[in-house]
Design a protein around this nucleic acid. Structure first.
Length: 714
DNA sequence: TGGGAGTGCTTTTTT
DNA sequence: AGCACTCCCA
């Protein structure tokens, strides 16, 4: 036991060994957050304060949950299998499966992922003859989810105008449709679980008494409903240990409420607030830059990271002429680093938006540097996988219209739009699922659709007694999917993925020893929805890591490049237009990016960049100015770059248009009588129409018509 | 039915 | 530019 806490620093030790109280742990980047969380659990158990049974630990991602479980079993000799460690959604699912009747769900209820949900909303709009231009499906999905995340059902939703009135009605229709089909979306898992506990007192009491200690990871990312859910579970005297970092809150755009941290402080933690401020990850200069940046945010709980690792290297800053120039510089540096013995896996290229990876990938590819991009399509989201799963879903629950429509005519079996319209109308009349309504169809539609129904019935019989992997294999073959992809030109990859699905089923059976409530199939399908597949294969390869800043949260690397540091890109213009809060979230994002680096940090930008098919002229990010100059080493002189704008076409892609005849060029410094000295960032038009965009620093960014504005080069 | 042309959008993302 | 989605024709 003393081993357990031997190497903790003072605040870590304090947090881990806290008596049974509510506590808020403000854990800075790289301060040993996960370690404290897991050691706390281990400590509570090994001192006999609680058994594995009485602990509830909540995370946001499956990855974090798995890591916690793994670390825990290395700390204490217990079987973690039965413990309630998981994601909010995973734990809610578990509760709902165990009490599906009380929750008003069918035993085999399935989970809609984002794509399924969108498909259902689109279908709904069509069936109800609603103009999808006036009510865009995506916006409606957002409307529905946002309400659920606030704990608001359609019946309680406020309809403050006619438009919203209609949206609320559609929300209600959507709820009905989900209930009819016996499916739940992600937000529903949480809301349904919350309502279950709220309404069912014996059940609530049971869990309130069971869980004595509740631990929450990444608390700054919780939304309102999640907070309410925690409050409910903690209502019986359980002690909540919340770990989070308000400075790393970067998910407000999807409903996270940093305010929950303050609320938690007010409602629970009181004076049990512990700050973990010693950073074990980054060298001093990197931390100093991070601290200097985040200091500019107003709403903070307050925290200052420090390290005893020494200053380390300066932060390297580079400004390229173009995005291509920037990419070339980066790849050159990487090659040098690798030559000096740095492992490519320890080098990360970060960007604000995924579209930026293209130029970088191109250059890496050209120079033969292996790389891996994170954040593409995930395994269970691939179309062939979703098709196979849809067949499986239909076996489990014929009322699943989303699954039905996905495969009723895939591979094609002559069931056209007319037949389906027919079917949907019939189903609507009968208030039943498409599958059920199929029997009532007459004519040609009745025949073709009937054929599909018979196929499903046949598959059901044939696979009834098969173990899961063989069942999956059988379905893939007999549904015609395999044959379809065998004849398709580009089908090879898809066939391999389908094989991989069979493997996944086999692994699943081995790992889980099969079955949860409702059998192996249902739990496998649940896994497919809840764990869309941990990124892609080939994770451990010797490759440079490319990812968005969001995706980098929680990771660390020896060398980090933060790329595309330009005004409008990072901070992103859409966020900046959302006012102060938007800019502050961008700054937190920058803070996250900076604190990923252990030893060396590069910050790079470009003067021109291809965006949406057009060349944009860029101004360096305001975040660059927020890093104290003495921490920086500029790898190209700033003054030089201003006057050294290359001639047209000199640098690969060149510019979209040659410099205009008025002699003013991007990068030139000019003086204006009123605004003072500024730098030209864009030019447009010619002759009398010519305009230039100038960044005057304090006086801001201005578009000036050359015909009127007097600009003198300086 | 399926493909080719035309249209529109484009921040970040987990469950 | 690149991609997803729709529409229309063979």
């Amino acid at each position: 036991m003393s081993d357990l806490i031997a190497n903790l620093n003072a605040p870590q030790l304090q947090a881990v060994t806290l008596p049974p109280v509510h506590a808020l742990i403000l854990a800075g980047a790289g301060s040993g957050k996960t370690r404290v969380l897991t050691t706390r659990i281990a400590w509570l158990m090994s001192t006999g304060q609680v058994g594995p049974h009485g602990v509830l630990a909540v995370t946001f991602t499956n990855k974090a949950a798995k890591e916690m479980t793994a670390r825990l079993s290395s700390l204490v000799p217990i079987n973690t299998r039965g413990m309630w460690i998981g994601t909010f959604h995973g734990l809610c699912n578990r509760l709902l499966r165990a009490h599906y009747r009380e929750a008003g769900l069918p035993q085999t209820f399935q989970i809609l992922d984002t794509a399924d949900q969108l498909a259902m909303v689109k279908r709904l709009l069509k069936n109800l003859n609603v103009d999808d231009e006036k009510y865009p499906p995506r916006e409606l999905v957002h409307f529905i989810n946002a309400h659920k995340e606030q704990g608001v059902r359609a019946a309680q939703a406020e309809a403050y105008d006619n438009y919203t009135q209609k949206r609320v009605e559609l929300y209600a229709e959507y709820e009905n449709q989900c209930n009819r089909e016996g499916v739940v979306d992600f937000a529903e898992l949480l809301l349904r679980c919350y309502e279950l506990l709220q309404r069912n007192e014996p059940l609530r009491r049971h869990y309130q008494e069971r869980f004595r200690y509740i631990l929450v990871d990444e608390f700054q990312d919780t939304n309102k409903l999640q907070y309410a859910w925690l409050q409910l579970l903690a209502g019986g005297g359980a002690k909540v240990f919340a770990v989070g970092d308000d400075d790393q809150s970067i998910y407000a755009f999807r409903g996270a409420e940093v305010g929950n941290m303050r609320d938690f402080e007010r409602d629970y933690a009181g004076d049990n607030i512990i700050r973990l401020e010693q950073n074990y990850r980054s060298h001093g200069n990197i931390l100093a830059a991070a601290n200097a940046l985040i200091k500019n945010n107003r709403e903070r709980l307050g925290k200052n990271l420090w390290t005893d690792a020494g200053e380390g290297e300066p932060i390297r800053a580079f400004e390229g002429y173009s995005d291509l120039d920037e990419a070339r510089f980066i790849v050159e540096e990487i090659r040098e680093l690798v030559r000096d013995g740095v492992s490519p896996t320890q080098v990360a290229l970060l960007y604000r938006s995924n579209a930026q990876s293209r130029v970088l990938e191109n250059e890496l590819f050209t120079k033969g540097v292996p790389y891996k991009v994170y954040g593409g399509l995930r395994f269970f989201e691939r179309q062939e996988i979703k098709h196979a799963l849809a067949y499986l879903r239909l076996l489990g629950n014929p009322d699943d219209d989303t699954a039905f429509l996905r495969v009723v005519n895939f591979p094609t079996r002559g069931i056209g739009a007319r037949s389906l319209e027919n079917l949907q109308a019939t189903a609507h009349q009968m208030n039943s699922s498409l599958y059920n309504a199929a029997a009532s169809l007459t004519g040609k539609a009745g025949q073709t659709v009937g054929g599909f129904i018979r196929l499903i019935e046949q598959l059901r019989q044939e696979t009834e007694n098969l173990p899961l992997p063989e069942m999956v294999e059988h379905i893939i073959e007999k549904s015609g999917l395999a044959q379809h992809y065998r004849t398709e030109k580009e089908g090879q990859d898809r066939l391999e993925n389908l094989d991989e699905l069979i493997n996944a089923a086999a692994t699943f059976i081995d790992d889980e020893g099969a079955i949860g409530e409702g059998g192996a199939l249902v739990s496998f399908l649940t896994l497919a929805s809840l764990e869309a597949g941990e990124h892609q294969a080939g994770e451990g390869q010797e490759a440079v890591q490319l990812m968005s800043v969001h995706a980098a949260k929680g990771l660390e690397f020896d060398v980090v490049f933060i790329t595309g540091l330009e005004q409008g890109l990072f901070p992103h213009e859409n966020s900046v237009s959302q006012g102060r809060d938007g800019l502050e979230e961008e700054r937190r994002l920058m803070y996250v990016a900076v604190t990923r680096a252990r030893k060396r940090l590069y910050v790079t930008c470009a003067q021109t960049r291809m965006l949406h098919g057009q060349t944009r002229y860029c101004v360096p990010s305001s975040f660059l100015e927020e890093i104290p100059e003495q921490l920086l080493r500029r790898l190209n002189k700033k003054a030089e770059s201003a006057s050294a704008v290359p001639a047209y076409g000199q640098f690969g892609g060149g510019y979209a248009e040659p410099p205009a005849a008025h002699g003013l060029r991007v990068g030139m410094n000019v003086e204006h009588a009123k605004f003072g000295v500024g730098v030209i960032v864009a030019t447009e038009g010619r002759g009398a129409d010519a305009r230039v965009q100038v960044n005057f620093g304090r006086a801001g960014m201005k578009w000036l018509a050359l015909e009127y504005a007097k600009l003198t080069p300086v």
